[in-house]
Design a protein around this nucleic acid. Structure first.
Lengths: 178, 178
DNA sequence: AGAAAATTTATCGTGTGCGATTTAATCGCA
DNA sequence: TGCGATTAAATCGCACACGATAAATTTTCT
């Protein structure tokens, strides 16, 4: 608010479309916050539907992964969902307590645990089949727009995962100059 | 993988661009999962940088909100960040324990608690100033693309928040038909 | 003025997420 | 063969996130 006129005076260095240094620390300009908030909005939108299946949102994602490919290991589910065993182990144990899945040590490699859908777990798929359409309608987006956003988000995730290991040094370098 | 040829046979009813019912329950087609994963990727990318400030990612967002407008109430921060007092109260108490903020009951309305930056908290802003540029570089996106994604995500969040209260009934209706 | 309703924050319990560590099994290599 | 390194789960502790609820204050209504 304070110096919007400044952008005119220094238009050669900072054209109108470019944010000032001050603007960069405004929450409204944070892409990460938009992702963060949209994620919460999804969780909240799913809640009333998933309550009817007795699932939390992460539990639902695990079930979707298993409906797509049954008998995955904890590690396999983890790499598919981007979660570690310290998150998945207790989550899957809760699914087991609900009798939706069973857990077995692999005979070939006893380090691994294979997660299998029970009849009850497989049966839940029919009830869940309508959820994507329901949520799709809720977003009010066309299928094409949704796909475009997905592609954008997946590219973003990929870029972040690639850059993450170096960010600590990049930040130090930025601080040294700034 | 099993029946990609099927889309040709039934092309009149389901053109190539439209997903089959089976495809709808594949994790790769879930916009919510792309948002969920991108959110985790941001948290992980921020981690090494925020460790140097001694902040978690949600704590950082609260600090950003306070740097933008100091002296907000718990409720004000909550509506800005989309969080409830049951999340913010302990989080802000941790910021207080780190001596980054102080908490005071409002004199005008003693129900409210105002959160003020300490000198240490205000000072941290200078160190945090380089983070957006650092993360911006990490995403590998142009400023325009980032803004477009932000607009898309904010529209999505808005649509989900609007639809959420009705989703339970919409789902029932969908199930009755499907 | 005074009781009922509404508002604001705080508290409690459950379920993620993840860093650090542990345990058990497998692999690699001398 | 055997022993150190690696890998897969599990465990533990801490910090969100949120539903349910409680406690204190203010507002509203009569």
């Amino acid at each position: 608010m304070s110096d919007t006129k400044g952008s005119r005076e220094t238009s050669a260095a900072t054209p109108a479309a470019e944010a000032t240094c001050e603007d960069l620390l405004k929450l409204g300009n944070f892409l990460c916050f938009s992702v963060y908030s949209a994620g919460h909005a999804f969780t909240r939108a799913y809640k009333p539907i998933l309550d009817k299946l007795g699932l939390t949102y992460p539990q639902y994602l695990v079930m979707v992964a298993l409906w797509e490919a049954d008998g995955q290991t904890i590690g396999g589910l983890g790499s598919r969902l981007g979660l570690e065993s310290n998150t998945l182990t207790p989550l899957v144990k809760r699914l087991e307590a609900m009798e939706l899945v069973s857990r077995h040590r692999c005979t070939e490699d006893e380090r691994q645990v294979r997660v299998r859908l029970s009849d009850k777990g497989s049966g839940l798929k029919a009830m869940a089949a309508g959820i994507p359409l329901c949520l799709g309608a809720a977003t009010g987006m066309t299928h094409e727009d949704a796909r475009r956003m997905q592609a954008d988000l997946d590219r973003l995730r990929e870029a972040l995962e690639t850059a993450a290991p170096r960010l600590s040094e990049v930040f130090e370098a930025t601080r040294a100059k700034g």
